[in-house]
């Protein structure tokens, strides 16, 4: 198996706080890895560092065999990395179809022309002339968008031409995932895909992510709903205060005292032991 993502000794400080502290993380192609940890543990900062939205103070990120540390996010995306955002960031005034098409941006021929003034100018001219190949390409992408939206049953397809701001919160989260899939990512980063969803919606999202896993999609997931994490993950990484405090198969991590401590508090007064004892009984 090839290592798709290799993060080593990554550090990011904000003022006096070290949000990400010497994190090592590797993801193999086809693997499903989850990152859990309390609020403020540095999980989203880690995602920002991997996807290029933020630059690390030290450490490296390797993706698909290349060092991508410090590259701009659009370059990293073009190499096959897609992510969703914790609070859902859809393009509010674009329709569902257009939102998903943006996901396919880097796969459009004209958009790949080198960013020199010439490439950009040609892209502009092509947009005005709209040659046959461009129309064919757009038609193909359009079909692809329908296929992707089909994964969500009839949640999104009937609303394909509605602007994203008119969608329910859960539907906006789905659009985000659809947009990420349109990039045909080698690695998919999901940041709390079920945040703010009710139980039915969460169950549906769990089934969907499970389906993506079955299709062989490599996924790195941040999630608070631990039953989802425990059922789907091949491996779980636990972060607290910017540090990786545990890593391993779900069932092992679940019973790791350090993890219980991170979630329930420091066992100074022996409380966590009591809880563990209570659970065992």
């Amino acid at each position: 198996m090839t290592t798709l993502l290799d993060v080593s000794a990554l550090v990011r400080r904000f003022g006096g706080i070290t949000a990400v502290n010497k994190i090592d993380l590797a993801v193999t192609a086809g693997e499903f890895v989850s990152i859990i940890g309390p609020n403020g543990a540095g999980k989203t900062t880690l995602f920002n560092l991997i996807s290029g939205l933020d630059r690390p103070d030290s450490g490296t990120v390797q993706f698909a065999g290349e060092t991508v540390t410090g590259l701009a996010p659009d370059h990293i995306a073009a190499r096959g990395l897609a992510r969703t955002f914790q609070h859902g960031r859809v393009f509010a005034n674009l329709t569902v179809r257009e939102n998903v098409l943006i996901g396919a941006h880097t796969r459009q021929r004209a958009a790949r022309w080198p960013a020199l003034p010439i490439g950009a100018a040609l892209e502009f001219v092509a947009a005005l002339i709209r040659p046959t190949w461009m129309r064919d390409e757009q038609e193909l992408l359009d079909q692809e968008v329908r296929d992707i939206l089909g994964i969500f049953g009839d949640r999104l397809l009937p609303r394909i031409d509605d602007p994203a701001h008119s969608l329910s919160y859960a539907n906006r989260r789905r659009v985000e995932i659809a947009r990420a899939l349109a990039l045909k990512p080698k690695l998919l980063l999901l940041d709390e895909p079920t945040a703010g969803m009710n139980q039915t919606e969460t169950a549906e999202m769990k089934a969907l992510i499970g389906e993506l896993k079955r299709r062989g999609q490599t996924i790195l997931l941040i999630e608070h709903k631990l039953d989802l994490v425990m059922q789907l993950s091949d491996r779980v990484v636990v972060m607290d205060d910017g540090i990786k405090i545990a890593e391993g198969p779900p069932q092992v991590v679940r019973h790791d005292p350090a993890v219980i401590e991170a979630y329930l508090g420091h066992p100074t007064l022996g409380a966590a032991e009591k809880v563990v004892a209570a659970e065992a009984s």
């Binding site: 631990l226 979630y263 409380a271």
Partner: peptide, 13 residues
């Protein structure tokens, strides 16, 4: 403190 349910509330049991 003694209730096992509290652990589930945190760890999503």
């Amino acid at each position: 403190l003694m209730d096992p349910g509290i652990r589930d509330a945190y760890l999503g049991g």
